[in-house]
Amino acid sequence: MNTRSPYQSAAFDSVLDLAPFRHAVGEAVVSLDVRAADPETFRGALRGQAAGDVHVLTIAASAHSVHRTESLIRTASQHYFKFTLLEAGTGMIVQDGRESALTAGDMTFYDTDRPYSLLYGDDSRLSVVMFPKDLLSLPADQLGRLTATRLGADSAVGSLVRPYLASLSERVRDLDPHTARRLSRTAVEMVATLVEEGMGSLTAPSGHDGLRRRVLDYIDEHLSSPDLSPPSIAAAHYISVRHLHGLFNDQGTTVSTVIRNRRLERCYDELIDPSSADRSVTSIALANGFVDAAHFSRTFRAHYGLPPSGIRPRRA
């Protein structure tokens, strides 16, 4: 992969000293302890966009390290996976007792709910996509064995993910919200495919994995029904409600949380879609299984930090 100057071509708003860079990174992704061997000469910049709850950005910086500590994790309210493409420079990732050296073109995957460190010994440039953990419907125990490893180094899938993520992270802020959302979700799907490829070398999928995927497909197909619930899902799959809850407890989530978040995602997609501009917020909420407009608005604001009306495209 060809390397380039870390600040080349991303149209960064400004190049920052250490303290403002630390603050900007914390605002854009999650709170991190950013350190530099020489704080006086450190320079860094970032550019990106949040498309709903998927964050895509480019980061360029001189030699530094970032650390996600236990104390920072305890204050977190959102639970994310992060996927990074190192476009230029060299580095190392450490998580879950593993460490992997990274060079330009390498990709890696890590969990913001557990401590990690990223160390860059020279000028570096990264493309990053960060997304809620429940968007990656893969077995948690196997995902935990892939953190801090190099993914897709020589695979066909990896060769497709690299240019897509690099291009998206550089241009995402120039896109309208609807397009940015769709392309960012595509990036998550591509990352999921790459991670799933990595899991294939670990173990064959279990019966629980197959059942969980069937349940998720069922949820997606029935999101519009206000009657969708753990009992109705369990009955449709001829299992007990307790068994159903166990499938998702293994993932660190609940059935109700998955239903709520997928409904919110679908509503978000429709709210920013220009073709839905003539539909009211209430009609979109009801069409996606919410039964109370006020409750929907409170839930949406709690999840995205904005009211539903706040993300709608302005009419010309």
Rank of each mutant, 00 (worst) to 15 (best):
Thr3Val: 13
Arg4Lys: 13
Arg4Ile: 02
Arg4Thr: 02
Pro6Tyr: 04
Phe12Pro: 13
Asp13Gln: 14
Arg22Ser: 10
Arg22Leu: 11
Ala28Trp: 05
Val29His: 10
Ala37Cys: 13
Glu40His: 08
Ala45Gln: 04
Gly48Glu: 03
Ala51Gly: 14
Ala51Trp: 00
Ala51Glu: 00
Val54Ser: 04
Val54Gly: 03
Val54His: 05
His55Ile: 15
Val56Asn: 03
Thr58Gln: 15
Ile59His: 08
Ala61Arg: 09
Ala63Met: 08
Val66Tyr: 08
Leu72Trp: 05
Thr75Gly: 09
Ala76Ser: 15
His79Arg: 14
His79Pro: 00
His79Asp: 11
His79Lys: 11
Tyr80Trp: 08
Phe81Pro: 06
Lys82His: 13
Thr84Glu: 10
Leu85Gly: 01
Ala88Cys: 14
Thr90Asp: 12
Ile93His: 04
Val94Tyr: 01
Gln95Thr: 05
Asp96Lys: 12
Gly97Tyr: 08
Gly97Lys: 07
Gly97Thr: 03
Glu99Trp: 10
Ala101Arg: 15
Leu102Trp: 00
Thr108Glu: 13
Phe109Lys: 03
Tyr110His: 13
Arg114Cys: 05
Tyr116His: 07
Tyr116Gly: 03
Ser117Gln: 13
Leu119Ile: 15
Leu126Asp: 03
Ser127Met: 05
Val128Tyr: 01
Val129His: 03
Met130Lys: 02
Leu138Glu: 15
Leu138Ala: 15
Arg145Gly: 00
Gly152Phe: 00
Gly152Ala: 00
Ala153Tyr: 00
Ala153Trp: 01
Ala153Leu: 07
Ala156Pro: 00
Ala156Ile: 02
Val161Arg: 00
Tyr164Ile: 03
Ala166Gly: 03
Leu168Tyr: 01
Leu168Asn: 02
Arg171Phe: 10
His178Gly: 07
Thr179Cys: 05
Ala180Ile: 04
Arg182Ser: 12
Ser184Leu: 09
Ala187Leu: 10
Glu189Ile: 01
Met190Leu: 13
Val191His: 03
Glu196Tyr: 12
Glu197Asp: 15
Glu197Pro: 04
Gly198Arg: 04
Ser201Arg: 12
Leu202Gln: 04
Gly207Phe: 12
Gly207Cys: 08
Leu211Pro: 07
Asp217Lys: 11
Asp217Arg: 13
Tyr218Phe: 14
Ile219Glu: 02
Asp220Lys: 07
Asp220Val: 08
Leu223Met: 14
Ser224Phe: 04
Pro230Trp: 07
His237Phe: 09
Tyr238Cys: 11
Ile239Trp: 01
Arg242Ser: 14
His245Gly: 14
Leu247Asp: 04
Phe248Ala: 02
Phe248Tyr: 13
Phe248Met: 10
Asp250Ile: 10
Gly252Ile: 06
Thr253Trp: 08
Thr257Trp: 01
Arg263Ile: 07
Leu264Cys: 01
Leu264Thr: 05
Glu265Val: 11
Arg266His: 11
Arg266Met: 06
Cys267Lys: 08
Cys267Ser: 11
Asp269Asn: 14
Ser275Phe: 07
Ala277Val: 15
Asp278His: 12
Arg279Glu: 12
Arg279Gln: 10
Ser283Tyr: 01
Ser283Cys: 03
Leu286His: 13
Gly289Trp: 08
Gly289Leu: 09
Val291Cys: 05
Asp292Ile: 06
Ala294Leu: 10
His295Lys: 11
His295Ile: 09
Ser297Val: 09
Ser297Glu: 07
Phe300Ala: 06
Gly305Gln: 06
Ile311Asp: 07
Ile311Cys: 06
Ile311Val: 15
